[in-house]
């Protein structure tokens, strides 16, 4: 029987993002409908790797500059050591044949996992639609709650 799963991705750490996408992909492979709602630091996972020219004020530009652009730039939630830990983790995972976060995201989307970016967080952090990957939805808390009402698993990562 197909169910629904919802995942709130609040964190922008490599390890947490991977956990979120592994669960999302697994659930989709079990035949479930999955919605991932990205808010605050989680939005960085959805950023394009390349810098996109958009109009921003000073603070928004600072925010954009300080935060990682996309899955390849994320750090670890523990033992990051200024990015060295994340580098080491990526190396180990490659050696052990674990999918990269980018691949996990592609797989999840190929299986129909729905991605929603929180528009309020985008506004606060000065992130524009043009800076995020294509083919995602934009919505607020009511959309997430509506999905969560119909889901039997809801995670906050």
């Amino acid at each position: 029987m197909a169910n629904k799963k919802t995942i709130i991705v609040f964190s922008g750490d490599l390890d947490k993002a991977m956990a979120a996408f592994i669960i999302a992909t697994g659930a989709a492979a079990m035949g479930d409908e999955v919605t991932m709602f990205f808010t605050f630091w989680g939005l960085n996972i959805l950023r394009k790797a390349k810098k996109v020219q958009v109009k921003k004020d000073f603070l928004e530009r600072m925010f954009g500059f300080m935060m990682p652009r996309g899955p390849e730039k994320l750090g670890l939630s523990k033992m990051n050591f200024g990015g060295l830990g994340a580098k080491m983790m990526r190396y180990i995972m490659k050696r052990k044949n674990v999918n990269t976060l980018t691949e996990l995201m592609e797989n999840a989307r190929a299986l129909g996992v729905r991605i929603i970016a929180c528009t309020m967080s985008m506004d606060v952090m000065g992130i524009k639609k043009e800076e995020l990957i294509d083919g995602i939805d934009y919505a607020g808390v009511a959309t997430y709650l509506g999905e969560a009402d119909e889901a039997n698993v809801n995670l906050f990562i």
Binding site: T25, G26, A29, V98, N99
Partner: peptide, 13 residues
């Protein structure tokens, strides 16, 4: 073979 979780169940699906 050699695929890590959740690779095998995705392939099966």
């Amino acid at each position: 073979k050699c695929l890590q979780c959740p690779g095998p169940i995705v392939q099966l699906f």
